[in-house]
Design a protein around this nucleic acid. Structure first.
Lengths: 205, 205
DNA sequence: AAGTTAAGGGTGGTCTGACCACTTTTGCAA
DNA sequence: TTGCAAAAGTGGTCAGACCACCCTTAACTT
């Protein structure tokens, strides 16, 4: 018997990785153009249809944008198409739901602490404004609030992960806290009461 | 002139929707088999390659599973695969070492707290064993230790994200704490001293 | 010369048909 | 009845053809 093959990778999967490498090597940024499908196929020694399968998947995830007659372009990642589609497919899976909300909440708590030293008066003012924005629905207000806050951590990875989880959670269940939560958090920020942030999240969860 | 087409939808997009409808109408559930690619192509009056583009996208999203020679099957949706793929694209283009290590550390801290109520004597014993495993290099010991701990949170999403970050961090700097850290943590676990965990991480970072 | 139009080349979008590799089923022979 | 090889079914991949669309350029008109 031959040695069992390591889980054979499909061509489109490896194409995915090679495209990623290409982007990396050439330092492509959002808006930049990728080589044409035919060019990629030839360069990677793959069939065009396999390259397309990879590109279609990337498109669905929102990583690239294709313009008929023009080409394929890198885009700033915005998880939106993905989520809409997933929402229509995904049935309620309680475990996933619970896992998701918990991790998201966890990140928000840590973001609240990480952002703490970076907040200036203007930030605090803005956060106050959002938290009191009564025309918004509570879930939307929550999102805006933490979108601003997470970005103030200056940790792009954290931002990306949070955005992704937020997009997913949006389709399942909207999560937010009582108004007092935001109010108290803002008080701690204003009074430089760092230690209480941790407890605040526990109190309201 | 013909009436301007509404934003022309690509075939693979509409195939996606038709497959969804098919699943709905036939009340397919995870594990059930979808019609073959050729069958779908014929039924929907589309080319097989277009059907494949739709299926590949669904596969990448983790909605279906394809088995060579057998068929295509519906599966329970788990966002993990998506997270992995996106992260691999998102992470590559920036200098994210610092971000990465910080988020990873953050997750480990929270995992240490989340796992707390789930730990039984056997777990504590095992963790003790790992932390005193002197033949391992410190980074490897750290990994083993938290691999075990993160799994004890019973949050599969958290596990996946941590594993992913760990995988990435492995290629850059290895992170670990002084021996006293693990020792103290184990003491808190043994003595049910939950509150001190948070401070422990701050102390050693 | 300036503006307009037509043609060509490049690119994504789609379909068809052909093989290959793998799994399950079938059917024949022992 | 049992064993196993052939056949059928299915996903994986490739090549080529053609269409639709966009942009550049060349030719034409004014």
């Amino acid at each position: 018997m031959a040695v069992p093959m390591s889980p054979k990778q499909k061509v489109y999967q490896s194409v995915l990785l090679e495209i990623r490498k290409f982007i990396e090597n050439n330092e492509l940024e959002p808006g930049d153009k990728l080589p044409s499908e035919r060019e990629l196929a030839e360069k990677l020694n793959r069939g065009r249809s396999s390259v397309r399968e990879a590109l279609r998947a990337m498109e669905l995830l929102g990583l690239i944008e294709t313009k008929h007659g023009e080409g394929t372009f890198l885009r700033t990642y915005r998880p939106y198409k993905t989520v809409e589609l997933l929402a229509s497919f995904v049935l309620q899976d309680h475990n996933t739901r619970h896992d998701l909300l918990l991790v998201k909440q966890l990140l928000e708590k840590e973001a609240a602490k990480l952002a703490y030293p970076n907040l200036n008066e203007k930030d605090i003012e803005e956060l106050n404004r959002i938290s009191k924005h009564t025309t918004m629905e509570p879930p939307e207000r929550h999102r805006e609030f933490f979108y601003y806050l997470v970005n103030r951590t200056d940790n792009r990875l954290l931002v990306k992960i949070w955005q992704l989880l937020d997009e997913f959670s949006r389709t399942i269940d909207s999560q937010y806290y009582m108004v007092d939560f935001y109010k108290e958090l803002m008080e701690y920020y204003s009074s430089r009461d760092y230690e209480k942030i941790e407890l605040l999240f526990e109190k309201y969860s």
